[in-house]
């Protein structure tokens, strides 16, 4: 059953929902931009841009609070049911998840100044591609929310595997590199955390998608196969030896 095209008899309720959707779009857009900004700052060693990303996270936090307040108020005042209720619960959870995405982006930006720009670590060459894939996941998750698109939400969850695969490759390559180049352990560890942050951002994009799927269909997305990460017992550790 698709989202109802009919308006509520009480027009103010539609107004509330439109405002809320706007806020979700804004917080999602800002989180995506923060990820992009942090990775650009890393690639170009742009400390100004990194600072802007750190500063911009305050706005994301403020939006999260605003969304939470609005959802609680709407539940209290409008007594929503069915798809309206599901959308509000999804909005509440999504705002919390996006706030975490913002935190990860901020954490990446903070590391830019700590990495010696002169040290070129070939092992991290996949990071920009991983960042692109991650940013795309976040973008798709919020597109799915805006369009009430359950299929796109499922696709995001499937695509998360790509980000996980990137992470596993980068993890192994960096560990191998650091073993061979102990003087790069400092920068290498920061890059490792950055890759881990991107991997977590990808997971949160799938969390957003799961909430979109729930809001649209009323069902929870089936337990899907998650890409294993480097911590899981693994048959192929050759890259790290």
């Amino acid at each position: 059953m698709n989202h109802s095209q009919n308006e509520h008899t009480l027009k103010a309720f539609d107004g509330d929902l439109i405002t809320l959707r706007g806020l979700i779009a804004e917080i999602g857009g800002r989180a995506e931009k923060a990820v992009e900004g942090a990775m650009t700052a890393l690639a170009t060693n742009d400390l100004d841009l990194a600072r802007q990303v750190v500063e911009g996270d305050k706005r994301i936090d403020a939006l999260e609070e605003q969304i939470d307040r609005m959802v609680i108020q709407t539940i209290a005042l409008r007594a929503p049911m069915a798809d309206d209720l599901r959308e509000l619960v999804a909005a509440l959870k999504i705002s919390g998840v996006v706030e975490r995405i913002g935190d990860y982006a901020k954490n990446i930006a903070k590391r830019v100044a700590l990495i010696d720009a002169d040290q070129h670590i070939e092992a991290a060459r996949l990071l920009p591609a991983m960042a692109d894939a991650t940013r795309q996941l976040v973008d798709d998750a919020f597109t799915a929310f805006a369009r009430r698109d359950a299929d796109l939400a499922v696709a995001v969850c499937a695509q998360d595997k790509t980000v996980d695969d990137f992470y596993n490759s980068i993890f192994r390559a960096l560990i191998a590199h650091m073993i061979e180049n102990p003087e790069h352990v400092g920068a290498g560890t920061h890059l490792l955390f950055i890759a881990k942050n991107l991997e977590r951002i990808g997971d949160h994009a799938t969390n957003v998608s799961e909430m979109v799927y729930f809001a649209v269909t009323g069902q929870s997305m089936n337990e899907r196969e998650r890409g294993d990460d480097a911590l899981a017992p693994d048959t192929d550790r050759s890259g790290a030896s």
Binding site: N6, H8, T9, P80, A82, R86
Partner: peptide, 18 residues
């Protein structure tokens, strides 16, 4: 009240009736 099957039910309980 959380996931009605029928569109008419949904429109009624969410206040979109008529």
């Amino acid at each position: 009240f959380t996931n009605p099957r029928e569109e008419r039910t949904r429109d009624y309980i969410t206040g979109r009736y008529g």
